[in-house]
Design a protein around this nucleic acid. Structure first.
Length: 496
RNA sequence: GGUCUUGUAGCCGAGUGGCUAGGCAAAGCUCUGCAAAAGCUUCUACACCGGUUCGAAUCCGGUCGAGACCUCCA
């Protein structure tokens, strides 16, 4: 079995990955709150963990991949009234809460498909697991780590910290947290400011509400992940992923809740992706730089110079390691677009190459190629270093191009090396990184039409009628079709 | 203010103490009727100041800048 190393946020270092029940692996990723349209910020975690899922699968693990949908309302931030977020917005839009949730869930799923993310194996919703959440809260109360006030239930952090390490994941110190000076809504009900809600009493105007032993209300934010992860992955599971912003309080609270209920910490490896910035600034409403996925793919945002294909965005995200911050700019995306095209051009050439069975050359180039290919696995094993994998594929591109135009001698390459190179592109570019060519598979009609134009241009060139031949070339490039005169005199085209 | 992360050539970004990724852009050359595409070549950077070391982008300390979180915001 492979030696995969994963950076564990809990220990702040890379650890060898050993599943609890190999070959089975449990993977939980915090999904979106579907009270609004998915934006660029959502792209990173889901692409990051899609690659994690793909790679684990390729290593031979049988992965249960759970990614929830938060469709029960939560609160607005400080200074605002405690109004159910989903309920409030649905009032403005005159929609039923579940209608709103459905609309944004659909948009989210559409975005995930555009990014070529594989569906999780289970996608549970918070509203579908109210019963499980209530059961969990009951146990926490029974064990004495939660208390009820006016129909709301709070987790007693101070008591928990007496026998557990609260703050270990996020590096918080309880004493510091207790001294926090911010005054927030509902503080008076809590014994300590650090306590967090497990269940909230619903005021009459709340539309989303469920019956519970403590009256009508709705679940606290953190309990849903604990309940759903526990239900589908067990009391202790392998990997929990999410954005760095969720470290505290969300994941810290998850650990606390699950530890009380199950008597042990729920997660072996915590993985957190870093955040996205836009032209050096964090994404936020006040900066007016929140780019929705629909805007990103259509170019319909003031900050965007053009539309960016989902695959370009995916490629760009994967050229940076998932734990590093990632800045979006037009320049960076355009450069990614060109780079990715170069890679896929090489991939296409490679696919068409024939492997000659007899060649057993041991020319130095074979060793070179072999290293580039085999290193890819090593890079992925080192905490999913997709950036390095991509760099190695770029190293192979000029070799492939060289083979095509005769710069690199075909005879120098052994059949097994060529096959290895084919497998490497297929495995990493397509399977693991989950990328696919932008252009649609060219249909035969288009192919035939272009062949007519190519022939006409050839005839013109023979007659030295360069005005005509150049016109054909120029008109096509305007339409986004690039003719390429190959070294052997043939002509191919690519759709830009 | 506290905790954590981070600062690499024009831009984006890998970098495990010594062998100095990669992409985009730029320049030159080859190829071409001219181009495009492709190939070859060039462009040696690590915020700043100290320290450890034979040797530091990499370790330690400080300064400055950036980002995340600091309680119901995914």
């Amino acid at each position: 079995m492979s030696e995969l190393f994963i950076y564990n946020s809990l220990s702040r270092q890379k650890e060898k990955f050993t599943p609890i029940n190999a070959p089975h692996v449990g993977l939980y990723v915090c999904g979106p709150t579907v009270s609004g349209e998915s934006h660029l910020g959502h792209a990173r975690p889901y692409i990051t963990f899609d690659v994690v899922y793909r790679y684990l699968t390729q290593l031979g693990y049988k992965v249960r991949y759970v990614r929830n949908i938060t469709d029960a309302g939560h609160f607005e931030e400080e200074g605002r009234e405690a109004v159910d977020k989903i309920a409030e917005k649905s009032f403005l839009e005159k929609l039923e809460p579940m209608e709103l949730v459905q609309k944004y869930s659909n948009l989210y799923h559409w975005g995930m498909k555009e990014f070529n993310n594989i569906d999780p194996t289970i996608e549970p919703t918070a509203t579908g697991h109210i019963v499980e959440q209530i059961e969990m809260i009951k146990i926490i109360i029974e064990k004495g780590y939660a208390y009820e006030v006016n129909g709301s239930v709070y987790f007693d952090v101070k008591k928990y910290a007496e026998s557990h390490e609260y703050g270990k994941l996020s590096g918080r110190i309880l004493e510091d947290l207790l001294e926090t000076t911010r005054d927030l809504e509902g503080q008076d009900e809590k014994r300590n400011k650090v306590d967090f809600a497990l269940w909230k009493h619903a005021a009459p105007e709340h539309i989303m509400r469920w019956a519970s032993p403590w009256g009508e209300g709705f679940p606290g934010w953190h309990i849903e992940c604990s309940a759903m992860a526990c239900k589908y992955l067990g009391n202790e599971f392998d990997i929990h992923g999410g954005g760095m912003d969720l470290l505290f309080p969300h994941h810290e609270s998850e650990i606390a809740q699950s530890s009380v209920v199950n008597g042990k910490a729920p997660v072996r490896y915590w993985m957190h992706n870093n955040m996205i910035t836009i032209e050096g600034r964090k994404m936020g409403k006040s900066y007016n730089n929140v780019i929705k996925l629909t805007e990103l793919f259509s170019g319909g945002h003031p900050m965007l110079q053009q539309a960016y294909h989902p695959m370009v965005v995916r490629f760009y995200i994967l050229t940076t390691h998932y734990r590093s911050p990632l800045d979006f700019s037009n320049e960076a995306l355009q450069s990614a677009e060109k780079g990715m095209k170069r890679l896929f051009d090489a991939y296409e050439i490679l696919q068409k190459m024939e492997v000659s069975k007899h060649n057993e050359s041991d020319h130095a180039i074979n060793k070179e190629i072999e290293k580039f290919c085999l290193d890819c696995k090593e890079f992925m094993d080192d905490d999913f270093s997709t950036a390095k994998v991509i760099a190695n594929l770029f190293e192979l591109a000029p070799i492939i191009n060289g083979l095509k135009d005769g710069h690199v001698k075909t005879n120098d390459m052994s059949a097994s090396t060529l096959q290895l190179m084919k497998d490497t592109f297929e495995n990493y570019l397509i399977q693991v990184l989950g990328l696919k060519p932008i252009q649609e598979v060219s249909n035969s009609k288009l192919d035939e039409v272009l062949q007519v134009l190519i022939d006409l241009r050839k005839e013109a060139k023979v007659k030295k009628d360069f005005a005509t031949s150049d016109k054909i070339r120029d008109v096509l490039i305007e339409k986004g079709i690039q003719l390429k005169d190959e070294k052997d005199g043939s002509v191919s085209y690519s759709i830009l």
